[in-house]
Simulated scan of single mutants.
Amino acid sequence: MKMVVGRVVGSIAEIEEADWDACLPGEAECHAYFSACDGAAAASGVGLRCGAVVVTDSVGVVAVAPVFLFTYRLDTPLQGRARRWAEAAFRLVPGLAALRVLCVGSPYAERCHLGFAARLDAAARAEAMQVLLTALEDEARARAAHLVAFKDLAPREDAELAPMLRCAGFASLGSLPVATLDLPFADAEGYLASLSGATRKDIRRKLAKAGAVRIEHRVGVVGLEGQIEALYEATRDCSGLDYGELEVLPPGYFAAVAEALGERAVFVLYFVGDTLAAFNLLLVEPDRVIDKFLGMRYPLARNHNVYAVSWMANVRFCLERAIGELQTGQTAYASKLRFGSRLVPSTIRFRHRNHLMQWLLARLAPRFSFDHLDPQLASSRTFPFPDG
């Protein structure tokens, strides 16, 4: 590989769709998806804007990843009373409370979409990665960013990149794991049989008491955009968790994603009578379904056990298509563990441009890891079994 060049561009749209998707094949969270997210953020002025880092050689594009710039509050992983105490303390030292971060990844994805061209061997991938790091460092300096970070590296990517990132001075921070349900079953009864007796009985009881819930699968949400956005915001407000800008969707997100992805974005709608009680957004890949967002109308959805209804509807959706993996995200771990999910670790790698601050942050990182401070994850560790 010769004439290897890296640069950060202001918009993912500046990279050819075919080049991007060739580096990240089979992803529902593809060039069209990230472009739709960025377009919604630009149109509304809400949400974080995404650019991209791209590496090319004399043949063409060899590496890509989304990037975004944001201000990270050091108390972001803290929740509840601990967050309130931290906010009070940070008022005394506001200059230390927040850091400007150039982040590889996307606020609209649960893993770091860093991809390489298939034609690269291991040595060429390492060279492309080194050029990518240099481009990020140059951009961080130009933007006066304090840190460069890689958000939500999945285990395989982290295992490959960790040696190089450690040599480059990056430290690690535990991020929120991603709940994933494996579905090697012929039908829903096979799935239910894999659960503990207590959980199986609980699901059946909730389905029996759900009442008349009508389920529709739609591609596109014309006419329902406002209701869907309101249900998402209501559910987020009720979650009790607050991760700041990292969980804010721009207005128009759902409509933009539906238009961009077509049949790869399926909306599952749950009606009680004529009232939309809940929705799921599913992103469909050949071997995986990503349960991207759930929004519910309270107390109607709770009264009709819509969470259990939606879980089983999504299990059936996967099994009917012979899709063996349902990714269910980085929230509500207690229920997902009970329903048979496993937790896939996720890692943040970061480097402060000031060596003294990097030394300090690296030592503070274990105390501020997201995976140890999430209240449901902390509770789940006290039980030996998912039904705990």
Score class of each variant (00 low, 15 high):
residue 369 S to F: 06
residue 234 A to E: 13
residue 299 P to G: 01
residue 20 W to P: 03
residue 126 A to P: 14
residue 141 R to E: 10
residue 274 D to W: 08
residue 213 V to L: 00
residue 6 G to M: 13
residue 171 A to N: 08
residue 235 T to V: 11
residue 156 R to F: 07
residue 148 V to A: 09
residue 112 C to K: 00
residue 201 K to N: 07
residue 147 L to P: 14
residue 23 C to S: 09
residue 11 S to F: 06
residue 246 L to G: 04
residue 380 S to G: 07
residue 21 D to Y: 15
residue 152 D to Q: 06
residue 332 A to M: 07
residue 186 A to Y: 09
residue 377 L to N: 13
residue 102 L to P: 12
residue 38 D to A: 11
residue 114 L to M: 15
residue 74 L to C: 07
residue 315 V to G: 10
residue 379 S to F: 03
residue 108 Y to P: 01
residue 253 Y to V: 06
residue 143 R to K: 05
residue 130 Q to I: 10
residue 103 C to Q: 14
residue 217 H to R: 15
residue 206 K to H: 04
residue 36 A to D: 00
residue 243 Y to L: 14
residue 247 E to Y: 08
residue 348 I to N: 00
residue 123 A to Y: 15
residue 294 L to G: 07
residue 354 N to K: 08
residue 293 F to W: 00
residue 199 T to M: 13
residue 378 A to K: 07
residue 123 A to W: 09
residue 11 S to Q: 11
residue 354 N to A: 12
residue 228 I to M: 02
residue 46 V to N: 03
residue 267 F to N: 03
residue 355 H to C: 08
residue 25 P to N: 06
residue 128 A to N: 03
residue 30 C to T: 12
residue 33 Y to L: 10
residue 127 E to K: 15
residue 360 L to D: 05
residue 177 P to E: 08
residue 346 S to A: 10
residue 332 A to R: 04
residue 342 R to Q: 13
residue 160 E to N: 13
residue 208 A to C: 03
residue 119 R to W: 01
residue 249 L to V: 11
residue 358 Q to D: 09
residue 340 G to H: 13
residue 17 E to Y: 15
residue 159 A to W: 01
residue 12 I to T: 01
residue 254 F to H: 12
residue 45 G to I: 00
residue 203 I to E: 07
residue 142 A to T: 08
residue 204 R to T: 06
residue 133 L to H: 01
residue 95 G to Q: 09
residue 318 C to M: 08
residue 48 L to T: 14
residue 239 S to E: 13
residue 157 E to R: 09
residue 332 A to Q: 06
residue 291 D to K: 03
residue 269 L to M: 10
residue 68 F to H: 05
residue 354 N to G: 05
residue 17 E to F: 15
residue 227 Q to T: 09
residue 213 V to Y: 00
residue 195 L to Q: 06
residue 340 G to Y: 13
residue 74 L to P: 10
residue 181 L to I: 09
residue 337 L to F: 05
residue 177 P to W: 07
residue 87 E to R: 15
residue 159 A to R: 07
residue 188 A to Y: 10
residue 46 V to I: 08
residue 39 G to S: 00
residue 71 T to L: 08
residue 378 A to P: 15
residue 283 L to E: 01
residue 347 T to C: 15
residue 33 Y to T: 05
residue 28 A to R: 06
residue 303 N to P: 09
residue 182 D to N: 08
residue 117 A to Q: 03
residue 111 R to F: 06
residue 370 F to E: 12
residue 16 E to F: 08
residue 41 A to D: 02
residue 263 E to I: 10
residue 386 P to I: 02
residue 36 A to N: 00
residue 386 P to V: 05
residue 102 L to Y: 04
residue 341 S to P: 04
residue 303 N to F: 13
residue 296 M to I: 02
residue 71 T to M: 12
residue 15 I to Q: 04
residue 82 A to Q: 05
residue 93 V to A: 08
residue 78 L to D: 14
residue 267 F to V: 05
residue 237 D to H: 14
residue 385 F to C: 15
residue 214 R to D: 12
residue 315 V to C: 05
residue 213 V to W: 01
residue 82 A to V: 05
residue 315 V to W: 09
residue 253 Y to T: 12
residue 302 R to G: 14
residue 207 L to E: 10
residue 361 L to G: 05
residue 343 L to A: 06
residue 276 L to Q: 04
residue 37 C to Y: 04
residue 134 T to F: 01
residue 351 R to G: 01
residue 281 L to I: 14
residue 335 S to N: 08
residue 114 L to N: 04
residue 146 H to T: 05
residue 370 F to S: 15
residue 249 L to W: 08
residue 206 K to E: 03
residue 49 R to K: 11
residue 139 E to M: 13
residue 275 T to M: 10
residue 14 E to W: 03
residue 241 L to A: 09
